[in-house]
């Protein structure tokens, strides 16, 4: 089942002196339960593309369709609600809410979706168990290691039962051991929960584990390779 479709997507930044074609005529499709990596050198347009897929930025032209909905047709307020219910985010620098515990950080997104308290609790514990942090549920981010914080971020991204998870260089700030654990967890969740993961990355470990690798250069897709 198709969860995400990009049709002739372009993003052009117009500054006073120079016109930058950050994403150039990208057409892609992602199916349910994919584990895909978008790779490419710095400035190749990975983050811009990911921002547009996540509805954080709008393409200059082209269509981004998620679950049959064209993002460009949504009003800003509808777009926020759409993100809440359909997209999970994992950021390079974790971006947890520092005043909340691990449990509260995961619960927060479900509270925004107005889940009943008992269901929230149940799902939070289930996810924190899945990322191996059942012992640290009451720890604040400042008391967790980078790897643990990123695992909480993964649990938070999955909490809303999104159609897919966008992870922008999720292992960039982690040591190799923490990165390996995180990747294993994500891969397991991808298999068990049938959730699509789309990464932007430079990390060869992620590329190795990804079942599909899309390479960008100067905003263009230069290769899109699937492997089984």
């Amino acid at each position: 089942m198709k969860v995400l479709e990009l049709k002739n997507v372009n993003k052009i930044y117009n500054s006073a002196e120079i016109k930058v074609h950050a994403v150039n005529d990208v057409t892609l499709e992602f199916e349910e339960a994919e584990f895909a990596a978008i790779v490419g050198p710095s400035g190749s347009g990975k983050t811009t593309l990911l921002n547009m897929i996540g509805g954080l930025d709008m393409p200059t032209s082209g269509e981004i369709i998620i679950g049959g909905v064209d993002l460009s047709r949504l009003r800003p307020s509808e777009l926020i609600d759409f993100r809440l219910n359909n997209i999970g985010f994992v950021f390079q620098s974790f971006n947890l809410i520092p005043v909340l515990t691990a449990k509260e950080n995961v619960e927060f997104i479900m509270a925004l979706q107005k889940w009943p308290a008992d269901k929230r609790e149940e799902r939070t514990l289930e996810l924190l168990r899945a990322v191996g942090l059942e012992e640290r549920i009451n720890s604040r981010p400042s008391k967790l290691s980078g790897g643990q914080q990123q695992r909480v971020a993964v649990a938070r991204a999955l909490a809303s039962r999104p159609k897919f998870v966008l992870a922008d260089e999720p292992t960039a700030n982690l040591d190799s051991k923490a990165a390996a654990i995180l990747l294993e967890i994500m891969e397991k969740l991808n298999r068990d929960e049938k959730i699509t993961f789309i990464f932007s990355t430079h990390d060869p470990r992620v590329m190795k584990m990804a079942r599909r690798v899309i390479t960008l250069e100067d905003g263009k897709v230069i290769s899109d390779e699937g492997k089984e």
Binding site: S77, I80, D81, R83, L84, F91, N95, L112, Q113
Partner: peptide, 16 residues
């Protein structure tokens, strides 16, 4: 700024 951006990105609407 960064945290507020994250909150809006993950779905916290303007009213909230």
């Amino acid at each position: 700024t960064r945290e507020l951006g994250m909150l809006m990105a993950i779905g916290m609407n303007r009213r909230r």
